[in-house]
């Protein structure tokens, strides 16, 4: 093989090996970090036609409306508990810390956390959008059957604690 070909071969092998390693690592890391999105009714009744239920200990995202009057706060430990609803049953969310500025009763939020009981999620992050008319797209679909709302701002979510 002439040196030029050899170098090319070397380059190609290098690229393939690098890509292979990257793909392997990526798939591995993805597997652990993909979180499915549920609405409260999906979480209770199962998701889709096969009614897939999340298992206890699963990391997931859940979006719904905060049930008015359901927010309970412990003044000394800053533990918060509230209920989320869409069209069916309610799900309880527990969270520790300060809620985002736009968290209000009757408003749509998205929480990220772990399912600790069949209808209780321990959240490590609570997101509320910085727009009073905003509702998470998935929630809007579930609640009103509206497909989508036009975004007024192209902004990041305000992030919860994690």
């Amino acid at each position: 093989m002439n040196p030029r070909r050899k170098k090319r071969l070397f380059a190609v092998v290098g690229i393939i090996m690098g890509l292979g390693a990257a793909v392997g690592l990526t798939l591995y890391a993805l597997q652990e970090n993909i979180n499915l999105f549920y609405t409260p009714s999906e979480l209770v009744n199962g998701k889709g036609e096969s009614h897939d239920m999340p298992f206890i200990g699963q990391k997931l995202r859940i979006g719904g409306m905060v049930v008015p009057g359901s927010v309970k706060r412990d003044d000394t430990t800053l533990d918060v508990e509230f209920k989320l609803i869409d069209t069916g049953p309610m799900v309880t969310i527990r969270y520790q810390g300060i809620l985002p500025d736009l968290f209000r009763e009757g408003q749509g939020i998205v929480a990220q956390g772990t399912l600790i009981e069949p209808t209780v999620v321990q959240a490590f992050e609570v997101l509320a959008k910085h727009d009073e008319e905003y509702m998470p797209a998935e929630v809007a679909e579930a609640v009103k059957g509206i497909k989508h709302e036009k975004p007024t701002y192209n902004l990041k979510d305000t992030k919860g604690d994690y």
Binding site: L25, A29, L30, N33, I34, K47, K59
Partner: peptide
């Protein structure tokens, strides 16, 4: 296929490597 999100740990892990 339904809504999913890819968590921050995914990016952090990949970039740390």
């Amino acid at each position: 296929l339904g809504a999913i999100s890819i968590g921050v740990p995914f990016f952090n892990k990949m970039f740390a490597i």
